[in-house]
């Protein structure tokens, strides 16, 4: 496709930023949680390594109901 690098960036940057926001919120929530379901380091690895779904998995299954 005939796109310049800057055009590519304008297309891909918003997506990358949203994904970054999702990952970072999940990490912050995980770090601040008193307890998670399962060890915390495992959730950190899942959030960082599993693309997009890592954060989703943490939000659905990782948090303990207060």
């Amino acid at each position: 496709m005939e796109l310049t690098t800057s055009q590519m960036m304008t297309i891909l940057l918003p997506i990358a930023l949203i994904q970054l926001a999702l990952t970072i919120t999940a990490l912050i929530v995980c770090a601040r949680a008193e307890e998670t379901r399962g060890p915390k380091w495992m959730w950190v690895l899942i959030i960082l390594l599993v693309n997009i779904f890592g954060a989703v998995l943490f939000f659905i299954f990782g948090r303990k109901q207060a």
Partner: peptide
């Protein structure tokens, strides 16, 4: 809000819609 659903559900939808 407390369970962050209001944050992550829209974000996931936006991501998949854009991708």
């Amino acid at each position: 809000t407390r369970s962050y659903k209001l944050l992550w559900v829209p974000l996931v939808f936006i991501l998949f819609g854009a991708m």
